[in-house]
């Protein structure tokens, strides 16, 4: 009986040696049926942990832990653009903007952005005044380039399609015709227009606390249509920015992750129970 035990132990140690050469540094899993043998095993290398599990207990563990379902839909989030709000308060134009974003596989993020573009500005040199307060919408999708999806950090690249149905007022000093000597008023109220554009988005986002993220995005925008009106181009297009064929813009986002918030809330509730 004793000889049998020694033979068994030797065989196990040989297996360990083979494993060390094949998987240096990684833990070695050995399953044995005889509990007496497992007590005598020693690790061949101090850097390589050896995990010895009884076959019966492993079977039991597998039975106890049900595999988690890997849903494609991972949650949703709400965000607010703080940079646009600050611009609306402190500069010639800005916007109040919010976004609703879905999360698929922590990789694909379809997003809807909506806001209100605001401008009330008079140029000091020309004395021309422009005013608007109109909505805009964007729809698009971001892709997360980060490999470690569980970290909560994101490097995002994406596209947006933007649309704004807007109204504006523009007025200025009368135009004097230097040749014919006439004076023509320049005043337009409630001019209706609409514009469509495309945005290429690059952004970063990081988790600050449990369900609260901060991020920014840089955007390169291409205006591909604007309705022409009597007074010409609108100086500012809500959601797009200062009128031009292409402009740069950005957002500074305060992101509230609804899924993580619900998860944390449920964990707390379960802990109380």
């Amino acid at each position: 009986m004793k000889i049998k035990k020694i033979l068994k132990s030797t065989f196990v140690l040989c297996l360990i040696n083979l494993s060390v050469h094949g998987y240096a540094g990684s833990p070695i899993h050995i399953s044995v049926t005889d509990s007496l043998v497992s007590d005598t095993i020693e690790a061949p290398d101090t850097n390589t942990p050896v995990i010895v599990e009884h076959k019966d207990s492993v079977v039991n563990k597998n039975e106890a832990i049900k595999p988690k379902k890997n849903y494609a839909f991972r949650g949703m989030s709400l965000s607010f653009d703080a940079a646009g709000g600050l611009m609306a308060l402190a500069t010639a134009f800005g916007q109040w903007e919010g976004a609703f974003r879905l999360n698929f596989l922590d990789t694909y993020f379809p997003v809807v952005e909506a806001g209100c573009g605001i401008s009330n500005h008079t140029n000091e040199t020309t004395d021309i005044h422009f005013k608007t307060n109109s909505p805009y919408f964007r729809i698009g999708c971001d892709y997360n380039f980060v490999k470690n999806k569980a970290s909560g950090n994101k490097i995002l690249g994406g596209l947006r399609f933007g649309y704004s149905p807007f109204k504006y007022d523009v007025d200025g000093p009368p135009i004097i015709d230097p040749v014919w000597g006439t004076e023509s008023p320049f005043e337009f109220k409630g001019v209706k227009s609409h514009a469509e554009w495309i945005e290429i988005v690059f952004g970063l986002e990081t988790r600050i606390v449990k369900f609260f993220n901060l991020g920014w995005s840089f955007r390169y925008k291409f205006l591909f249509h604007e309705k022409k009106n009597a007074p010409g181009k609108a100086w500012y297009i809500p959601g797009y920015g200062k009128n031009g064929d292409n402009v740069m813009g950005g957002t500074f986002n305060l992101v509230f992750d609804i899924s993580t918030y619900r998860k944390v809330k449920n964990e707390k509730r379960n802990a109380v129970k």
Partner: peptide, 15 residues
């Protein structure tokens, strides 16, 4: 005559 504004930086004119 069509009134035209190119930008707030430029005076308005007519096309």
């Amino acid at each position: 005559a069509i009134p035209h504004l190119e930008s707030l930086d430029c005076p308005s004119t007519f096309f």
